[in-house]
Design a protein around this nucleic acid. Sequence first.
DNA 1: CATGAATGAGTTTTCATTCAT
DNA 2: TATGAATGAAAACTCATTCAT
Lengths: 206, 206, 206, 206
Amino acid sequence: MDSPQSKHTAAVSGNGDDSGVSDSPKAQAILDASLALFAEKGYDGTAVPLIAEKAGVGAGTIYRYFESKEVLVNILYRRWRTVFRDALLADVPADAPPREVFTMLWNRMADFQREHPQAYAFLEFYNHTYLNEENIALTESIVDFLAGFLRRGQDHGVFRKVPPGMLIFMVLGAFVGLVRAESAGRLELTAEAIRESEEICWRAIT
Amino acid sequence: MDSPQSKHTAAVSGNGDDSGVSDSPKAQAILDASLALFAEKGYDGTAVPLIAEKAGVGAGTIYRYFESKEVLVNILYRRWRTVFRDALLADVPADAPPREVFTMLWNRMADFQREHPQAYAFLEFYNHTYLNEENIALTESIVDFLAGFLRRGQDHGVFRKVPPGMLIFMVLGAFVGLVRAESAGRLELTAEAIRESEEICWRAIT
Amino acid sequence: MDSPQSKHTAAVSGNGDDSGVSDSPKAQAILDASLALFAEKGYDGTAVPLIAEKAGVGAGTIYRYFESKEVLVNILYRRWRTVFRDALLADVPADAPPREVFTMLWNRMADFQREHPQAYAFLEFYNHTYLNEENIALTESIVDFLAGFLRRGQDHGVFRKVPPGMLIFMVLGAFVGLVRAESAGRLELTAEAIRESEEICWRAIT
Amino acid sequence: MDSPQSKHTAAVSGNGDDSGVSDSPKAQAILDASLALFAEKGYDGTAVPLIAEKAGVGAGTIYRYFESKEVLVNILYRRWRTVFRDALLADVPADAPPREVFTMLWNRMADFQREHPQAYAFLEFYNHTYLNEENIALTESIVDFLAGFLRRGQDHGVFRKVPPGMLIFMVLGAFVGLVRAESAGRLELTAEAIRESEEICWRAIT
DNA sequence: CATGAATGAGTTTTCATTCAT
DNA sequence: TATGAATGAAAACTCATTCAT
């Protein structure tokens, strides 16, 4: 229901394969169950047998596919962060007007959240204290890409002359806020809401 | 060092007492240790004996002051959410210009985060799956207050005509983003950065 | 490389067949892998899937040839204890001078250890808590044979008049000690060392 | 029943204390239970909850005193190897006649085995694959001491001119054999048997 | 009051054995 | 016949909670 389809495109440096993770249906069921539970209860709040039960496999089976719970969560994170990165950054037109690019990025983020709400919650609602270096680098690479976009826009006088990280994290944070608002029942993330919030953020950073 | 001093003010409906939690130095040490550990490792990632050690008390002592770990974290949450609420909302002048009020709110939020970074991280970096009804209501009351402020501003044509929850959660989320940006080493939250980000958010919501 | 060739000789009561154990190459590979692993890590320290991997067969295959791990180790023990017995006792000349017989036994033991170091380690370095009655009897039969030899020598005034078991176990134990000394790097078991140690033991028991 | 009394004497370099192992009755009960079970079933054949049950403590209690099963077995080994070393080597008269010294050593070894049969079985009946460097060094230090004794005797023409390690390991191995003979019901280790076997070994090495 | 040693239920992980292919 | 993926029972280990002191 909520598994990455790996529509790899080359916008950002990518590791072409999925580095040793079996794509068997069991492995996939385990990853799916983990995603749902980690999104809901967090990593430390989720017991491995619970994952097994939800995945419909024996507890031991998880360890046939993943060395440990920590390796599992890192693979899950890498998969989804990669999907997120690709969904967000693939084929961003280098020479399009900043306004168009921004709209594209915002809509893609919203699409990702709508299509993969558990993945979005898993990625954004928690402090990932267990991330390995690869995943830290992967996450930073996304910010780096966005920082490049912003810096070029700043050079053209489009974006405010503040540290790009400020704008990036504020915008990403604002979107997390939107999703939380919906969770809190304060908002429905309709197409209209996405459009309005996009305009709000554009106003913010220009 | 980082404990709420309960400078109660009447801006928001408050429960006058602290609901049965002793204010003994031991209880305080336990709450302080919990805050530091929950902020760093999360609720499920923190063992009670570790709290005891950091608090300099016996493990059993924790259970003299708090029925259970879950009760403890709810009390901790309530205390800090209350401090946050009071720090943010106390004596907000009802008739001041929206721009001034917004600046005040932004600066108060920044002050709170600077003075109590652990409390801020505890409150905002995690999904609080264990919150009791009281704490849920307390959290919502803050949003309700802000929603009133926004709605009045909207009525005067100052703020965008979108669901107030959208603006509130986006602004709060943007500030969380700023703090994360600092954690990620992408930003220093200087006075200038606070001023700039405030302006950005003001532009966003108007 | 290290598998018993079943050169059955009739020195000691032998069960003529190999009691239901197939002699297929797979069964042999499993026995060889088991021997290497049990010698190195002990019975309880060796996982069945590891045996399978080392044998180059599937884990399930082991159970086609052996009912259980315990049955496997008993078969392995029987095979090697039998080889040991045959290598030690086959065609011992009944009427040769005790000194010659002793030298022959000592050299045969050394030959066995040199040719099958893993088998020797498996047989002698561990407490075999899992042995079935057949294997216990098999092991005792070797001691019984040696006891007969010693008793005859005692009757001729060649060996010390002490319980034969004392001499047998001391000599066998001394040889185990020699092998351990080599493992510990305190000794090289050269032909000369074998000769010297033989003389030492001969002196001991006469 | 079978716990080291630490009658420290200074014959061999010793670490004066017991390096961080609590001497509480619980820790002692755990060590005693471990000794009995490891002696009977080996390290890998003994489950921690079984140790707990035999010790009359909860399973978790073991981990209050010992970091892990491996640390536990190393501490147990160190304790008993130290007791063995002290029992064997304390105050060995440097200038006594070799024969007297040998008798003393032999009797001390027999005394240790008689007084602490489980400890002797634990120390000598198994391959200790888990030993840390400290314990390896400790074990070697005993052999080194004995090697010095033998080398001096060889210089005086008392002992055979073979590598001292050969004599040491043969004698120690012979004694292990005696104990196994008794286990096998082939022998009773009476005072007379000890005396006779001592003479046998003396004959062997001279 | 305060403790911290003790615990057993629960955690992560392993492994002998099975069974669908 | 051979497999190796799958498993659940049991292993090692952790931790929220209790209770004797």
